[in-house]
Design a protein around this nucleic acid. Sequence first.
DNA 1: CGCTTCCTTGATTTATGTCAACGTGCGTGG
DNA 2: CCACGCACGTTGACATAAATCAAGGAAGCG
Lengths: 246, 246
Amino acid sequence: MQERLTKIGIFGPGDLAILEGIHRRTSTHPAGHLLQPENGAIENARIMLSGWAVRFRSLASGDRQIINFVLPGDCIGLYGALFERTDFGVELITDASFAEFPCAALMSAFHQSARLGAALCWMAAQDERMLEQQVFRLGALNATTRIAHLLVELQHRLLTAGIKPVEAMSMPITQKHIGEALGLSHVHVNRCCRKLKKLGLIEIGAHGLTLLEPGELRQLCDFEPKKGPSADRADPAHGDLAVNLG
Amino acid sequence: MQERLTKIGIFGPGDLAILEGIHRRTSTHPAGHLLQPENGAIENARIMLSGWAVRFRSLASGDRQIINFVLPGDCIGLYGALFERTDFGVELITDASFAEFPCAALMSAFHQSARLGAALCWMAAQDERMLEQQVFRLGALNATTRIAHLLVELQHRLLTAGIKPVEAMSMPITQKHIGEALGLSHVHVNRCCRKLKKLGLIEIGAHGLTLLEPGELRQLCDFEPKKGPSADRADPAHGDLAVNLG
DNA sequence: CGCTTCCTTGATTTATGTCAACGTGCGTGG
DNA sequence: CCACGCACGTTGACATAAATCAAGGAAGCG
């Protein structure tokens, strides 16, 4: 398991021992599994090791709003210790595996390693950035560019998580998922996807979409790749991280 | 200043000393002031003591998307130490005052008090919940209910921050702000507001909107008030906080 | 006073949703 | 093996929400 976490690049080798100390177990679940119900309690924080999932919230009408997609390296329930109940559910899109940690232990780990605390903060900050992006898409873009923006962000996050570039072009999501995430009807998503396909920017396969021209997609939706001096690094010790507390 | 922070209810008395130790200064700025440019660096984290502001992101077209509203008790730049540059700007809607802290010192404060660390985490978690709400609005609601939902959330947050109930009904924002936040044209916002006014749910004054029937507004947009055993408490020592690390 | 900002309203256009229908592939049970 | 249902993609016709364009009014402010 260590290999996985370090490969994802979130933790330094020194902190792994601490994390290992509070690590409870690794779990695997099949596609479609409801990992967490809406309005449930959170006992464990999880880091996704592999697979795809969605965080969502249901409406009285029976529709649901996908808050965001969960990819390898992402956290679920990081703040579990702070609230009695969640206001969202988590459902797996593909088979997926997770490292599980008791919430309370995770929070107290802050005090054992400044470096680890910074890493956890960094992950929380990433989470917040993701949501900001989602707000931006929903508020400021039209259907086609919204889809393009989402696809580009997913690819970007996959790359950041250490997924191989070729695989990071492949999105195992249905057009219905896209609609639920972007507030569009699946019919309209379909029309926009066909348009993108006609432009040669994406490919529509049996098991999801594939990005063909990420560069053109970025251009289309005016996606900002966050070019810092040494961007695209997931490790908080380098690149994005401005202050090292070690 | 202590009175303000404790009144807002985020910190316990024990932690105030630590926070006071790293507190740099209190600043005040006039309405319209650009507190933080897009793409700038963050040197200070700020806690808003009074006033209203927006966090926004600009588009090439000249429009801007308001990510969220900043109210008393909210943090800005909590993660400042973790990134070299922000991807959003902050502009004041009204005159406002802030407590300022060097980012790095704030992060290291985690290690001086578990209670304080939990409080900061709690604030970050609140931030994330806010964004989730915003995503929900933008993705799942139509124009009128979107506006109602926003107004109800703002009122709820004002109450949580310790603002007096009467004052928490009053929103010093323009219809343009609402449009920029909710991805609607100001013309359409106006039509929806008039509809809400005609229903007797809000009042449209010279300096913003006033909620007349929060209950009916909640019902209209199916707003969940997060009723836990002892909800509506801002202090992480009680209510929402499930685990106390002290 | 003349400027600006904000609110307001009507007419028209555009983007997107809804409804309905059909095709495909795929798994399941007979 | 086949028949069936089911989830997903696709397309067309139509309905509706919201944007855009245009114009004017009211309040604040130099």
